[in-house]
């Protein structure tokens, strides 16, 4: 087989990888904000739940989380009589998203805490409620702070999708492995996916850079 013949199956795999990355990054972003803000809550139940989520998903391996959601959860569901079988895509998106969200939540928390206390005092003096102060004053200043770390996490997430091949998801790594088994042409196949992952990572880095510019426009004027 010629290397060009690998292109079609590999690009099909790449398309799965892209979808996995996009969906799990969205899930991750939602988790990041929900639990990052939750960790700063004065409500102990919300705070406790957020801390538990962050520590559990940061403190266990992604591979184990993936296997747990895909293999163990259905069995646990069986035991209590609920059908918790997840399609591979759902299990992959969920595991990746929850995992990256736990790291993202710490980024969100740190960025919110880096907003100067005097900003909250000014907000209070103008009679904003704590909720308004968070959404209108603190978060818009914190989000540009988060962007470089978010960029790292998004690229990390892309590379982590390769683990999803282990629950028989037909992503780029999975397809590559299949071709390799078939042809024994390891060098060509692995070199090709190396460049494909790298290309996708560059696109993500570029997109995150644009996003960073968009949310931080006010930081660049007048300096």
């Amino acid at each position: 087989m010629e290397w060009s013949e690998y292109l079609k199956p590999l690009s099909q795999g790449a398309w799965i990888t892209i979808q996995l990355t996009v969906y799990s990054t969205i899930v991750g972003a939602i988790c990041s904000f929900a639990f990052g803000i939750g960790k700063l809550s004065t409500n102990w139940a919300i705070k406790g739940f957020s801390i538990a989520y962050i520590e559990i998903f940061r403190g266990t391996s992604l591979l184990v989380q993936l296997f747990w959601l895909y293999f163990a959860l259905p069995i646990a569901g069986d035991a209590i009589g609920i059908d918790l079988r997840l399609p591979p895509v759902a299990a992959g998106v969920l595991a990746l998203g929850l995992n990256i969200g736990a790291y993202g939540a710490e980024v969100v928390r740190g960025a919110i805490q880096s907003v100067r206390y005097s900003q909250y005092e000014a907000a209070k003096a103008l009679n904003f409620s704590p909720r308004q102060a968070l959404w209108r004053i603190a978060l818009p200043q914190a989000i540009p702070e988060m962007m470089p770390a978010f960029g790292n996490l998004a690229v990390q997430n892309l590379k982590d999708t390769a683990l999803a091949s282990l629950i028989s998801l037909g992503d780029l790594a999975f397809v590559a492995e299949r071709i390799r088994n078939f042809t024994q042409d390891s060098t060509t196949v692995y070199t090709m996916i190396l460049f494909m992952y790298f290309g996708m990572a560059l696109v993500i880095a570029g997109l995150m850079h644009l996003l960073e510019r968009a949310v931080g426009r006010w930081r660049r004027v007048g300096h």
């Binding site: 005097s118 005092e121 000014a122 209070k124 003096a125 009679n127 004053i137 200043q141 006010w218």
Partner: peptide, 19 residues
Amino acid sequence: KKMRAKLGMVFQQFNLFPH
């Protein structure tokens, strides 16, 4: 909240909202 509405404050470091 009701009482705060009666008062306005100007800060030494201005504390404007930079964004």
